[in-house]
Every structure is written in C-alpha cells, then in structure tokens.
Design a binder for these strands. Structure first.
Lengths: 271, 271
DNA sequence: CCAAAAGTGTTTCGAGTACACCCATGC
DNA sequence: GCATGGGTGTACTCGAAACACTTTTGG
C-alpha cells in the first residue's frame, strides 16, 4: 500500500467457472486454450473496468449469458502457477439455467467448433490449462456448501420448474440421492417456492405441478462480497435454514429384496 | 487470458485484517495511513513473492506475528475504490492470540507512536482509509460464520486456556452471551479440547482447569483456498458439527426477579 | 462472610431421518 | 395393463435449548 517495491508488476486476469445442469449432471463451460487443452473462459480487465464487470463480460462473450448469479471464488497469485508470466488470477463461479446460455447451447452437440465454448461434466473433466482444474474443484466445493444453506440452486433452473427437477439439481450437485418426501416437505415448509397454476405434462406419467422461486422481499440478501453501496444484485439469494444437509440418502434403490450389505458404495461426505 | 487489452495495468496490493481478543473484545490491527486516518496494514507483493507470502510479510512487519492463521477474504478491484490509482486489493484476515503479537503489543497503551501499529476494537472503529472499513466488516462477518463450524476460535487463545476464556472469545465475536453449561458440554463432547494437569489460580475465586486445543490428526483440514500441493498449513483447523450456533443466549442477566418482558433487547441474528 | 468465577444435570422441544404406497398419464 | 415419474404421512431419534445451585478461593 505505502510500500511500493514494484519490479515487474503482475498481470491481473479473471477466470470464470460457469456451471449449468445438463442431462442431470453438473457441467462447466470450457473454451479452447492456446495449447490444445481446454480452459476456463477469462480475460484481462480493461482499465476502468471493475473485476465484476470483467467477469460478466467474459460470461456474455463466451456463453451469451447475461444476468447470471456470479460470485467471487478466490484469487490465485502464486508466482509459479503460470510459467509464462506472473499472473494474479481473480476467479469466479457463476450459475445459469440451461435455457439461458444461448451461445454455449448452440456450440455443443457437434464435436466442438473452433473457438467455440462447450460444456463438460465436472464428473469427467478433460485436461485443463494451468491450475484450472483446481479452480473448478474449488468452485464445486463452494457450490455444494452454498447449496445447503442458501437458495443458489434455483439459479440453475428455469423460472418454472417441477419439484422433481429441483430435487434432481440438488442431487446432481451433492452427488447423492435425497429422499423425495423429506425434500418436498422441507422446500415447501421453508416457503421458498410457490405453486403456479400451470402443470407440466411430459410423456407417459402424471402431470407435474409447476413451481416458481419465491424470492420476494428477500429477508437478507447474502452472497460473496460485502455488497454495500454498489449496483443492485441481478439475482436474489436467500439464506435458509439448511435446505439439504439433513436430507440424506433417499430410499434404497431396489424396492424389491433390499440387499443387506450396508457398507460399500455411497460415501459423499465430500471435501 | 487470451484477450489482452492491457492499457494501464492495475497495481496489485494486499491488505490484512489481523484480529485478536483484548479486554474481552475483538480488535483489529491498524497502522497510520498517509492522510491522518488509519488503515489496514498492507503492501505490494514483490515479484516472485506469492500473495500468501506477501500477506505473511505484512503480518511479520506490522505486528511481529508469525505463523498465524491466515485466510483470503476477497479481492476488491473496483476502479473507483482508490481515487489515486487503479488498484486491485487482495485482502486477508488473520488471527493471533494476544500473547503472540509482540510488536503490536508494545505499541498500544501509549497514545500511539508514529509509524506504530495499534489495536482498535471492531465495535468502535475510527475512520479508516479507502474502503477498509468495509473490509473489516466483511472479515468480521466471515469470522463469525467460521466460528460456528470450525475451530478457528482457538487461534485467538494461548496454548493453555480455561473454558471460561474460550467462552468469552466466542461471546466477544458472536456478540451474544452463551449458556455456560451447554457451551462446556458441547466443547467437551466434540473432543476438541483436552484437559491438562495445570490449573490457573487468579484472584479471589476457585482455580480453573487449564485446557489445550486437541488438534491432533486433523480429520479434515479446511480453510480458504483449495490447498492441494503447496506448503503445509501452519495451523490446524477442524471442521466440527456446529460449535456455537445452537448455543443461544445464555442465562438471564439478573438471577433475582427475572423481568417478564421477553421482547426487547438481544437480536444478534447479525449480518 | 462476602464477592467472584468455576463447575455441574436434567427436561423439553423440534428438526432430521427413515420408510411404502397410490395416482395420473401415454403407449 | 404396464411403465414412468408425481404425489403424500407418520414414527423415532437425537441434538439444541432452557434452566439454578454448589464449590473454591482471596480479601
């Protein structure tokens, strides 16, 4: 601050891990790095451009995603992390509903275009540039935590959703099955969802009630930074009394003849 | 990352909020800023010096504090936060036991020397430079949260302590009284303290058992960054099942004739 | 003997969890 | 009629919370 031993000043950069749910799996957005590997989308903040603004610009350019939930993750500045040059990377993570990231949606099914962004499931990541793998891992860990006591999860769903969809989002992120009845009771009891008049009928099953997120009044907005004066947050987040932690594993997978060996799979205590 | 519109690159700086408990109150270390106000100690990382290393250097220089608990807080990079020049500040918070910060301890009682660091209670902060007030507030918020599900609290105590001292640390940070019996039971039940053979006798009261932190084996180290390969953590932190959250407000202040109006003071749900 | 902090158990309440069956639909 | 997901209620357990008196010491 008042000690300025500026020799070769580090470059400030930004990297963003954008998550979505596709195929009931948590996926990250990746872009081709220079060296054949993939990387998190990123940029260098322009002068007069704030760090948040830079991150949002990255999201808009790489994924066509605007107004998404965005939170700062960590700042990496180890001199050895980038062999090319000293770089201080301010990293972020962001969430979009699958229906709200046009660019990234277009360029996926075809085996990846050129400079095109593509989604990759976090459960099976390809090789990533630099320490980006670590960044993704850390973001997932954070997301898991936040999922348990906030309503971030809703950022991954469209405006209208069924409770089944909501539960699958939770299960995909936490990596463990939840009990349907407990999940529903708790979600309704917390008052964070409101039923709409619409129903969704999809295929050969009973139509499902559509719900919406009840982010009204926002009793206390929470999130990463000490948001004091600055711009209004693009999305609302509620702090709730533990949404899922309690909701342990759901019913046994096989309803018939439950195998009596309770000690092999499913650990899930996670990092 | 691959888009480099580097015009006037921002300066990277570091600021650290070092906390301790003195006089049963949470206090921060402040140093004189250029302009008559006080500021958090900080510096600019040297080339080839990591961000963590820079923060530790600040702590050593400003407070003579080594091997303290240190965690990254947030990175502020709003172009307007420092009118002088574009600055990206990577901020940290740190904890020391009162008996382990020599420099800061020397320079306090006398009405502040010249370049000397001094402690200020967070409950009554003087005017701080730039957005440092906001940084302190955010750090306190984070500390409160971490206190509830980790053992950070022990970083604020000497190696041997009484359960009364431990409880006062919790109360000072959380800003609310805790129930003595519930607190002790839980702490012992969690197995995070071990009794020593020593007793402390201090003045006109029953001597107190001395305890130590039971940070053995460290079932899972937790903290800020995704510590993967790098150096071994200087201190151990355990994740515990809620140390205090439950411990609501303690016994009514006046044991005699408890006033029957339960609706005025004590809110404490905090931000 | 008085003040001051240390130390110690029990009861109540509610959240968390486990668990199984019927319903509405499309094919 | 059958496969598929939607929808619903209860009982048990355990942690969280409230609560008051005795002990040891120094002055």
């Amino acid at each position: 601050m008042h000690d300025t031993s500026a020799d070769r000043p580090p470059v400030v950069s930004t990297a963003v891990a954008l998550f979505t749910i596709r195929d009931d799996a948590l996926q990250v957005l990746l872009v081709p790095a220079g060296d054949g590997t993939l990387a998190l989308p990123g940029t260098t903040p322009r002068h007069d451009e704030g760090l948040v603004a830079a991150a949002r610009r990255v999201l808009a350019e790489a994924a066509g995603a605007e107004d998404v939930w965005l939170e700062q993750l960590y700042t990496f500045g180890d001199p050895t992390r980038n062999p090319a040059h000293r770089e201080v990377a301010v990293t972020w993570y962001a969430l979009v509903a699958a229906d709200r990231a046009p660019a990234a949606n277009a360029a996926d099914a075809p085996a990846a275009g050129d400079g095109a962004a593509r989604w990759a499931p976090v459960a099976a990541l390809p090789a990533l540039a630099l320490d980006h793998r670590r960044i993704v891992d850390y973001a997932v860990q954070r997301l898991r935590n936040k999922l348990e006591y906030t309503t971030v999860g809703f950022q991954l769903l469209p405006a209208r959703f069924t409770l089944g969809e909501l539960q699958r989002v939770y299960e995909a992120i936490l990596g463990r099955p939840l009990d349907k009845r407990n999940f529903r009771r708790k979600v309704e009891l917390l008052g964070i969802v409101r039923p709409t008049r619409e129903m969704r009928r999809a295929g050969a099953q009973r139509p499902a009630q559509l719900w919406r997120f009840a982010a009204t009044e926002a009793p206390e907005a929470i999130g990463g930074p000490p948001a004091n004066t600055a711009a209004t947050p693009p999305v609302e987040l509620l702090r709730v009394a533990r949404l899922s932690p309690s909701l342990r594993r759901g019913p046994s997978r096989s309803a018939v003849t439950p195998p009596e060996n309770p000690a092999a799979p499913e650990r899930g205590s996670a990092a």
